[in-house]
């Protein structure tokens, strides 16, 4: 409950933040803190300097581009995502997911970037980023770079950032008529989770992107996506195409659920996410 000694610094600019991270051993960025402070309270990680990036204006905007893609600042809170008319128009299901993430107090404080960087398997946005093929924008001492979502998550609680780098924002491609489905098994936060982005035409699935969460690294399911492409957008066809969604994944076993159960549930949530995306399309 009580943190070990730590220093704190709130830079005014992104450059200052990068500089602080680069020059201080054991420095970590602090955004909403809804994961990091919890870890520090349990003294499960040792940090010497917290660099508070939660007020950096560069990180706090949601901007829709002409092509319909949307850039969400890493420091945007879940609540700000939920309340954003722009995001509601561009990615309505994501807006809805943000509106129901954890609870009101966490939504008011937790940030999109923090949720992604922390990559706790129970976090909900990593599989969203992977399914949508998001681009992660990063700034570090050597300048800016972009990382594909598929390459961003590297393991349990880890990501591709080096210690001087900060995730500044994430660009989600336009849905362009596709719809997103998001389904989870709510045990604790979630024991299994799937995100599907599906395009349908004339009652058939044109293309589908399916990602599973609640894993050390969120994964796409290419075999499932191939099986879905071209099949009728019906419950039976989707059930058949997603039946093997959990094959080969290695979920955790913990107090909430066994790996066996999580694996079995992977295909259930995958099926439900795809059906939700299809129904989203049918509903307009």
């Amino acid at each position: 409950m009580l943190l070990a000694a730590v220093d704190y610094y709130r830079p005014d600019t992104l450059a200052e933040a990068v500089e602080a991270l680069d020059s201080t051993e054991g420095a970590r960025p602090l955004a909403g803190g809804q994961s990091l402070i919890s870890i520090l309270k349990l003294r499960a990680a040792s940090v010497d300097l917290l660099v508070d990036i939660s007020r950096l204006e560069d990180l706090r905007a949601i901007a829709v581009a002409d092509d319909g893609s949307v850039r969400i600042g890493a420091g945007v809170t879940y609540d700000e995502m939920a309340m954003s008319p722009d995001l509601h128009r561009s990615h309505p299901r994501l807006s809805q997911v943000a509106a129901h993430t954890v609870d009101a107090q966490v939504r008011n404080r937790g940030t999109f970037g923090g949720n992604l960087c922390h990559n706790d398997p129970i976090n909900n946005f990593p599989p969203v980023a992977v399914a949508l093929e998001a681009t992660m924008h990063v700034t570090g001492k050597d300048g800016d770079r972009d990382i594909a979502a598929a390459d961003f998550f590297t393991g349990y609680f880890t990501n591709a950032l080096s210690s001087d780098e900060i995730l500044t924002g994430v660009t989600l491609p336009a849905l362009n008529g596709r719809h997103m489905g998001y389904q989870e098994i709510e045990i604790g936060e979630a024991a299994a989770r799937a995100v599907a982005v599906v395009a349908t035409s004339n009652g058939n699935i044109e293309s589908a992107s399916v990602a599973l969460g609640c894993l050390p690294i969120p994964v796409r399911r290419p075999q499932v996506e191939e099986a879905l492409a071209g099949t009728p957008a019906t419950a039976d066809a989707v059930a058949e195409a997603t039946a093997a969604a959990g094959e080969g994944i290695e979920p955790l076993s913990d107090a909430d659920a066994s790996a066996d159960y999580r694996q079995a549930m992977a295909s259930v949530v995958a099926k439900r996410a795809v059906m939700e995306a299809i129904e989203g399309g049918q509903n307009g």
């Binding site: 709130r10 803190g33 309270k41 609540d79 107090q105 966490v106 008011n108 404080r109």
Partner: peptide, 14 residues
Amino acid sequence: KTIKSCMALAVQAD
């Protein structure tokens, strides 16, 4: 906006 005050540092209240 509501937050849990055990999930923020005092210095962040500045």
